[in-house]
Write a protein that binds this DNA or RNA. Structure first.
Length: 509
RNA sequence: GCCGCGUUGGUCAAGCGGUUAAGACGCCUCCCUUUCACGGAGGAAUGACGGGUUCGAUUCCCGUACGCGGUACCA
């Protein structure tokens, strides 16, 4: 066992919003690094210039910040292995491609896109379902393996567009031990000669990921399961570049699947089923299309992170609610489940509810403030906090504080009269009229004294207090909801309570 | 098609050769509350299929099925 310091990396390509699954990959990286006292680096894999999206990198950074999963090194703060954007490391890669060519592990290929297309057509016509540029095909294409050395030199000297491809060996088995799946192996014959360096001089993911993981001294590489099929290319590259002993340990994370049916969860599913898929709102600068995020939907980052941790990983105990510190403590990559997990929004809501209930009222009130502001309301902070404390038990989201407590801020604009009228009597009307005078004179306006006087007067008038409580609730809230009535009254205060009783009495009569 | 990975209730999942096959979400019933929620007590519901190996398979092996992923000068 080497004693190398653990270094992991999250390497997104900045092409859009950050998906749930991406955040989970970040999380697992982060937890693993912290658990082992290692470092977590953020590397931007922007080698495909045609897919560059304005603002995507900033968005990713902001997501990590919101989730509390910030990287120790990255384009935002530099570090000993800067730069952390592959586009800024462009000059680095070519030498490794050439080293590979010189060692006979790779070759120059001059085929034009048209020639490639023609080859595929021919292959398809021959019944080849998905033509590959492989050990057989490379023998009939235009590359440094088939061309005369002198011609290759001329072509190169003239600056002819070309790529560098890996030369996959024939009849070999490549295997490695995945931290989650155990031994995984591939036959090299089934893998094609992947492009390593593109005609524009940029490396492909395949080259860049191994060069940068090596240069950045990455010890453990976690990525989605969709990368498993190209693992043999990467393994071979580590070997061919002579870095085999420094190769990181791999772990291919299971996918997050859509709740209904099968397949990878996509933002489309979110739109379709009515829940967010991205961490935060993402506005596509090209299409102007807005994709909803967990943050804007009223999720607390701790809840979001906790929920994600339990999707594909479990501690082996019955504990489900974990602070980030507890996660760091408990996390182990071996306990990551192999199979994909269907995303369950109801469970996500449950997690958020747990955290809302736990969170202190003042903080919650602050997060809720924007909703109030948007409605043109500006109640006192302490009042908002008090209300929040009263209703949070029934909220799954921050925004729901309004749904469950709006009547603390505005008078009801409609009443559930159907719940009152059928059983309304002049006696009940009289009860409330006289109770107003009773509470007006109350020395203290607390839910205890309110309830006492309410029940006492009801008994005096020969009405069961229970029959009066629902009408009273509707007077204050407009409907059958909310915290205990007398607590509502106390919170509203004497004046407002009396006013609402009078207003409602006029309607009930 | 080919290659790879996977498969325990509706969902997340524990288990690592002998269990009444945990727990959570959701659902249902009841209690609490003359609102709703929280809380509490119950309930229904699970090892894809077929072969082995074994005294004994959810657990190990092999097939099959199904699902997913990959099969680009995208990551």
């Amino acid at each position: 066992m080497s004693q190398k310091k653990v270094r992991v990396r999250f390497a997104p390509s900045p092409t859009g919003g950050l998906h749930l699954g991406g955040v989970r990959t970040v999380l697992f990286n982060y937890l693993f690094a912290r658990h082992h006292g290692g470092e977590f680096v953020l590397r931007i894999e922007d080698t495909d210039q045609t897919r560059f999206v304005e603002g995507a990198e900033e968005y990713i950074l902001e997501c990590l910040r919101w989730c509390g999963l910030e990287a120790d090194e990255g384009p935002h703060k530099g570090g000993p292995y800067a730069p952390y954007r592959q586009s800024e490391r462009k000059a680095l890669y070519r030498q490794y491609g050439e080293q590979l060519v010189n060692a006979g592990f790779a070759y120059y290929a001059f085929d034009t896109p048209e020639e490639l297309e023609a080859m595929r057509e021919v292959e398809k016509a021959r019944g080849n379902h998905s033509p590959q540029y492989n050990h057989a095909v490379r023998k009939i294409m235009r590359n440094s393996l088939t061309l005369e050395a002198a011609e290759v030199k001329t072509l190169l000297d003239k600056g002819t567009p070309h790529v560098i491809r890996i030369k996959m060996p024939e009849n070999e088995e490549v295997s490695f031990t995945d931290m989650i799946r155990g031994e995984v192996s591939f036959q090299t014959n089934t893998v094609d000669d992947k492009v390593l360096l593109k005609a524009d001089g940029m490396p492909t993911y395949h080259l860049a990921v191994v060069v940068d993981d090596y240069l950045m001294k990455i010890t453990h590489a976690f990525r989605g399961e969709e990368w498993l099929p190209s693992a043999p290319v990467h393994i071979l590259l580590w070997k061919y570049l002579g870095w085999e002993t420094d190769m990181p340990q791999w772990a291919h994370l299971p996918l997050i699947l859509k709740p209904d049916g099968n397949g990878k969860l996509s933002k489309r599913d979110g739109d379709r089923l009515g829940f967010p898929v991205y961490a935060m709102n993402w506005l596509d600068p090209k299409t102007n299309e807005l994709t909803k995020g967990f943050r804007e939907n009223g999720f607390l980052p701790e809840a979001f992170v906790n929920m994600l941790a339990m999707l594909g990983w479990n501690p082996g105990s019955e504990q489900e609610i974990f602070s980030i510190e507890e996660l760091v403590q408990a996390f182990s990559i071996e306990r990551v489940h192999k199979g994909g997990a269907k995303f369950d929004y109801d469970k996500a809501k449950w997690f958020n509810h747990q955290y809302i209930v736990k969170k202190d009222d003042a903080t919650l009130a602050k997060l809720f403030q924007p909703v109030l502001t948007e409605k043109g309301l500006a109640p006192e902070e302490t009042y908002v906090a008090k209300v929040t404390g009263l209703v949070k038990e029934r909220c799954h989201f921050i925004n729901e504080i309004w749904d469950h407590g709006f009547f603390f801020f505005v008078r009801p604009d409609k009443y559930d009269v159907d719940a009152v009228k059928p059983k309304w009597t002049p006696e009940k009307q009289a009860f409330f009229e006289s109770w107003i005078t009773v509470i007006e004179a109350l020395p203290d306006f607390t839910f205890v004294s309110l309830e006492e006087s309410f029940k006492q007067l009801a008994t005096e008038k020969g009405i069961k207090p229970g029959e009066l409580q629902l009408p009273f609730r509707i007077m204050l809230c407009g409907g059958k909801f909310g915290p205990p009535v007398f607590v509502i009254a106390e919170t509203l205060g004497k004046e407002e309570t009396i006013e609402r009783i009078k207003l409602a009495l006029a309607i009930f009569a």
